[in-house]
């Protein structure tokens, strides 16, 4: 939480997914708060980098097996390197990393829908370190019936591979 805005709200704003009223409230705050404006810039740069890695992962899926393995490894290393260090890592940033990781496999829209549904069921009071495991389990439950057991297991593994701390 920073200046009355949650991590989730910051991510929604940077992705253009925020509701009109919350958006105008945040925009008004950004106009007068240099600290939050800097934070938003950082989130946008970081989000762009994750999206680039997500696109690389998607391309990697089209390649022959040897090249795919190499590109997957490189992308995962880069995501790990770009990822903020443990003391700065928040749930919203972990959600963005999860979307970047799984989007190329399932489709960005599918992951967005599954993450939203899992947040609603697994973390109705807001996502934090304590509710992350419940969220990950719900994410698996959301994806599995439609996309299969392997896909559900991937979603759970990917979520649990991201260590999350409260911010």
């Amino acid at each position: 939480m920073q200046h009355g805005f949650t991590e989730q709200e910051w991510m929604e704003f940077s992705e253009g997914a925020m509701g009109a009223s919350s958006r105008s409230r945040l925009e008004a705050h950004l106009a007068v708060c240099a600290e939050c404006a800097a934070k938003l810039d950082a989130i946008r740069v970081w989000h762009q980098r994750l999206s680039t890695e997500g696109e690389r992962l998607r391309v990697a899926m089209e390649l022959p097996e040897i090249d795919r393995e190499r590109m997957l490894a490189q992308s995962l290393e880069r995501i790990a390197a770009e990822y903020p260090s443990a003391e700065r890592r928040g749930p919203a940033e972990a959600l963005a990393a999860l979307r970047a990781l799984l989007g190329p496999v399932f489709g960005a829209g599918m992951i967005r829908a599954a993450v939203d549904a899992a947040l609603e069921r697994g973390a109705p009071g807001g996502i934090n370190a304590a509710s992350w495991s419940a969220f990950a389990a719900e994410l698996r439950e959301m994806i599995q019936p439609a996309c299969g057991l392997a896909a559900g297991f991937l979603a759970l593994r990917a979520a649990m591979s991201l260590a999350v701390a409260d911010r």
Partner: peptide
Amino acid sequence: LTIESRELTARLA
């Protein structure tokens, strides 16, 4: 989708 899920899961193991 199943194959790619398994490959990425193995990577994340």
